[in-house]
């Protein structure tokens, strides 16, 4: 009985995260379009795109790994989300969080991209191979300040449990990590810019440069799976950052406001700066963000 209830709650939680992630994506596309002086697609466009991708009648495949790529990517997004307690103190949205979940979540953020790299490699498109190389290099670079920031947090709160970290920030706004450990927060926010793949760090998808990067050969329901993952993964990342640095959320409306505000950082930077070259992006992450991360670690 307990397992059935838990599974039902998890299902509800995943659906909410998915719908919220896709809606945020739609809103962001609209905002970016307004900054360009365009009208922009409707907010629900990501949903229509997913339905349409799944409505393709024919599909081609390049091998077994080609199928597994999107599956791994989706599992990575899903795995990241289900181990993060989304709403502090809520039974429905606590997901599968446990005492060491922070390390597992960090692993899952990596996992999807590695799976996608294998799948895209089997697709055989030259642009995919270029993008996979860029993506893994950039991911290694932004993982460094992120990991330093996480270690700083773990020493600060003396725990690896996300729930405990959120609980320690409940004494008021001034107890949020962004105020108690600003260096770690800024190092991680720089890493978030890289994770969200908005300009200037969109060197992986890089439209107009290398056609679409890893998903160049993907179509039909495989592409639909990648788009679905985009919704859930965005939710997962933003909720993780909200939990670690901005005091978590006690209910869904606060979660929505906070995650949206965190995403706006990527959008503001994205519409203001043109794309980096691959080497510039990697050098950037190994510069100021890493120094901030090391300082945050030394101070603790």
């Amino acid at each position: 009985m307990y397992i059935a209830t838990k599974a039902f709650y998890l299902f509800v939680s995943i659906i909410v995260a998915l719908v919220w992630g896709l809606t945020v994506n739609g809103i962001v596309r609209k905002i970016v379009a307004r900054v360009h002086g365009r009208i922009g697609p409707p907010v629900w466009q990501p949903f229509i795109d997913i339905i349409k991708s799944n409505a393709k009648r024919s599909m081609i495949a390049h091998g077994v790994m080609f199928y597994f790529g999107p599956v791994f990517r989706f599992a990575g997004g899903l795995g990241t989300y289900v181990f993060i307690p989304a709403v502090f103190g809520s039974v429905v949205f606590e997901n599968l969080s446990f005492s060491g979940d922070l390390l597992l979540v960090m692993y899952f953020i990596f996992f999807g991209q590695l799976g996608m790299a294998l799948g895209a490699g089997e697709g055989g498109h030259p642009a995919s191979a270029i993008a996979v190389g860029r993506g893994l290099a950039q991911m290694t670079a932004f993982e460094l300040p992120f990991a330093l920031s996480i270690i700083s947090l773990a020493t600060q709160y003396n725990t690896l449990s996300i729930t405990d970290i959120v609980a320690a920030q409940q004494a008021g706004v001034m107890s949020w990590t962004v105020f108690t450990n600003p260096l770690a927060t800024f190092a991680a926010l720089f890493a978030l810019l890289g994770m969200n793949m908005h300009s200037p760090f969109d060197i992986v998808i890089a439209p107009q440069e290398i056609p679409l990067g890893p998903p160049t050969e993907y179509q039909g329901s495989l592409l639909g799976m990648l788009h679905t993952n985009r919704g859930i993964f965005v939710s997962a990342k933003l909720i993780l950052f909200m939990n670690l640095y901005f005091g978590g959320a006690l209910n869904l409306p606060i979660l929505m406001v906070k995650t949206f505000a965190i995403y706006m950082l990527s959008v503001v930077v994205g519409v203001a700066f043109p794309r980096f070259r691959a080497d510039q992006s990697i050098r950037f992450f190994l510069g100021v963000p890493t120094v901030l991360g090391i300082l945050a670690l030394l101070i603790q």
């Binding site: 379009a33 365009r38 009208i39 922009g40 697609p41 409707p42 466009q45 229509i48 349409k52 991708s53 081609i60 498109h125 439209p207 107009q208 056609p211 679409l212 998903p215 160049t216 050969e217 993907y218 179509q219 592409l223």
Partner: peptide
């Protein structure tokens, strides 16, 4: 702006309709 009608350029024939 045709993106307001849900249209988008795709650089690859695999995903285009």
């Amino acid at each position: 702006d045709i993106s307001q009608y849900g249209m988008n350029p795709r650089p690859t024939p695999r995903q285009s309709s």
